[in-house]
């Protein structure tokens, strides 16, 4: 028999507290993010290159996606190059980064490996991530300097080991163009991104591995599983949610890559070979006073939004929890069966 107190607890509805707890988030979200997002959509349908307020329909999108006259073609080409650069830079940093951090996370959490100073290594590998990206860009700009008479650290180092020629009479270096080349600056930026983010990813994955019930690993080691088997059969499947999180955040981060490509150049113009979509939007947005490219910036933003959306959905689909889905299906099936059975008995549940 249920006591009076138990019955009372059941009858209290706590739903209103749920709303109270999530309210601040949604108020701020609507005010500072959703409205600006809608505003961006509105802006993307306006501005014809002369006046920001004119409604032009899909013309901005048409210009960016397909070009048209000479001016439109130039904008279209900039967009395509920026998209290509963004993809190149992201892929070139994510693959080494994930390989590095996943292997490190597994090695660091393996209990029977006796490696001294694990704590120190973890601390040092996370270090680059806390440094401001803007400072890092300026620092690498100094280190990768390509002046013939006063090159940066990298060219000096390469001449020491004999890769870069040094002419002693004219005191000039035959420098590698780490700033103004095509693939050299791309390589440098990929390196910087990997350098900065692998420690971060490693710690995220490690926290995931440590969240796995240790008795599973114990049982596996008692049963004589090799470390490869443990990785494939225990660590990897149970790590899927955290991996999904890492993949999605890295992808979104990659599309937003701004600070380093924006700052990694000498002089005033951004290097076209590393110009990402985010840089393009920023440039167009700031060019509004002279050329009124505000609408184009809005349209490019909206396109970026849809690209992100598609990528996010794909990665969620690929890394979804298959067991959970199977269970849900089963539950639905059982519920359906019960319904049918209850119908058989004339609508009364048994």
């Amino acid at each position: 028999m249920a006591s009076a107190a138990q019955r009372r607890i059941k009858s209290i509805s706590y739903a209103k507290y749920g709303y109270m707890f999530i309210l601040p988030f949604f108020i701020v979200y609507f005010f500072f993010q959703l409205y600006p997002l809608l505003n961006t959509f509105i802006v993307s349908f306006h501005g014809n290159g002369l006046n920001v307020d004119d409604f032009v329909g899909f013309e901005n999108y048409k210009t960016i996606l397909f070009g048209g006259d000479r001016r439109a073609n130039a904008i279209h080409e900039t967009f395509v190059t920026s998209l290509k650069n963004t993809i190149i830079l992201w892929v070139g940093n994510f693959i080494p980064q994930l390989a590095l951090s996943l292997s490190l996370a597994v090695w660091f959490t393996e209990a029977n490996l006796k490696i001294p100073g694990k704590g120190f290594f973890k601390v040092v590998m996370y270090l680059p991530n806390i440094i401001t990206a803007a400072s890092v860009a300026v620092l690498f700009l100094q280190l990768c300097g390509q002046s013939e008479t006063n090159p940066g650290f990298l060219n000096q180092f390469l001449s020491k080991i004999g890769v870069v020629d040094y002419d002693a009479t004219s005191k000039k270096y035959d420098v590698i163009p780490f700033i103004e080349g095509v693939w050299q600056p791309r390589g440098v930026i990929m390196f910087i991104q990997t350098w900065m983010w692998f420690g971060n990813t490693m710690i995220m994955l490690m926290s995931g591995i440590q969240g796995i019930n240790p008795s599973l690993f114990e049982a596996a080691s008692i049963d004589g599983a090799s470390s490869g088997q443990v990785f494939r059969k225990i660590t990897l499947p149970l790590l899927t949610p955290i991996m999904a999180y890492t993949l999605v955040t890295s992808m979104i981060g990659g599309l937003q890559m701004f600070d380093i490509p924006f700052l990694y150049h000498r002089g005033t113009a951004v290097n076209e070979d590393v110009q990402t979509i985010a840089v393009m939007i920023y440039e167009y947005f700031h060019a509004q006073l002279e050329q009124s490219k505000m609408g184009l910036a809005g349209a490019a933003s909206v396109l970026l939004f849809f690209i992100t959306l598609v990528l996010g959905c794909i990665s969620f689909y690929l890394t979804r929890d298959k067991d959970e889905i199977a269970k849900k299906k089963q539950r639905k099936k059982i519920a359906k069966q019960l319904k049918q059975e209850s119908k058989q008995f004339g609508g009364f549940s048994v």
Binding site: Q33, N39, T40, V248, S301, F305
Partner: peptide, 10 residues
């Protein structure tokens, strides 16, 4: 999934 750049103009 909404990148900062998307909302920044608005």
């Amino acid at each position: 999934m909404v990148p900062v750049q998307v909302t920044s103009a608005g």
